[in-house]
Design a protein around this nucleic acid. Structure first.
Lengths: 141, 141
DNA sequence: CTCTTAATGAAAAGGTTTTTCAGTAAAGAT
DNA sequence: ATCTTTACTGAAAAACCTTTTCATTAAGAG
């Protein structure tokens, strides 16, 4: 049983073949995957998987903080395996390969300054970086 | 003619009553407005305005950097008047009132560190802060 | 193995955003 | 002021992504 499956079981959820298939795809993803893409890859393992179950499993994994949802410019959402703690995604605009990073320390100063100037109390943030990964830089240059 | 209308005219676009109505609503918005909300407010000025034209005008204003699109957790998009330069939105999770801020200096150090560690070249970023505005803090406390 | 009920898949519904297309009106030319 | 061109508009339909509904299936406790 994988670590993710243990977390599911610990939360009182059943370990089913459809969930195993979705998990297998997501655990090793290195770019944000759309639900439709997850479906197509997972169906090679579990043929009769439906898109609805992909969405339900993604919601479940999000609640357990096992995956992170990233916003795309076109308005739909990709999903990435989430590392522990509050991290952010750096996404290649060409191949969509993503890495995570922590921005906590640098953001802390910024957030304090903004709180002082605006009077707002900040309790959450969304940060995504966009650029070119090393691989795609080579191809371009 | 307002500043926004001059920008439109300068870009070769026609100044029409529907566009004026959308602009009038957005110029003074202090919270991200949904296309549907913009429609309802703008229809008090231009009764036969359609939702399609709201979307088309929002795309136009986005291209001219007169409005900024902010991502909401539910997946749809709100629109805010954009100040000059690269700014970010701080949004109240209760009343949705928003203020803008510049995070350029603080993010610069973070971005350089992430570039050094990952090899990515970062050329854009998305940063939104969420919290409570002073007004809603009072109401809560 | 049996039983309970969580989980599934198909179909339908719900929402937002885009496309299509015939009609309208803005703005430059006359 | 009027004409002419064509960008713009609104309604309807289409195209998405995502959620809900509901009858059926199967996980896992006893």
């Amino acid at each position: 049983m994988t670590e993710w499956e243990q977390r599911l079981a610990g939360a009182g959820c059943r370990i089913t073949a459809p969930r195993r298939a979705v998990i297998a795809v997501l655990m090793n993803a290195d770019a944000p995957l759309l639900p439709q893409e997850i479906l197509e890859q997972a169906q090679t393992v579990h043929r009769k998987l439906g898109l609805v179950t992909v969405y339900r499993t993604l919601n479940l994994l999000s609640e357990l903080s096992l995956v992170r949802r990233v916003h795309r410019e076109d308005g739909c959402h990709g999903y990435l395996p989430a590392s522990a703690g509050h991290r952010h995604a750096l996404i290649c605009r060409n191949c969509h390969r993503a890495v995570e990073f922590t921005g906590h320390n640098d953001l802390h100063a910024l957030i304090e300054r903004v709180e002082a100037r605006t009077g707002y109390r900040v309790d959450d943030h969304l940060l995504q970086l966009l650029g070119l990964c090393p691989h795609c830089q080579e191809r371009e240059g």
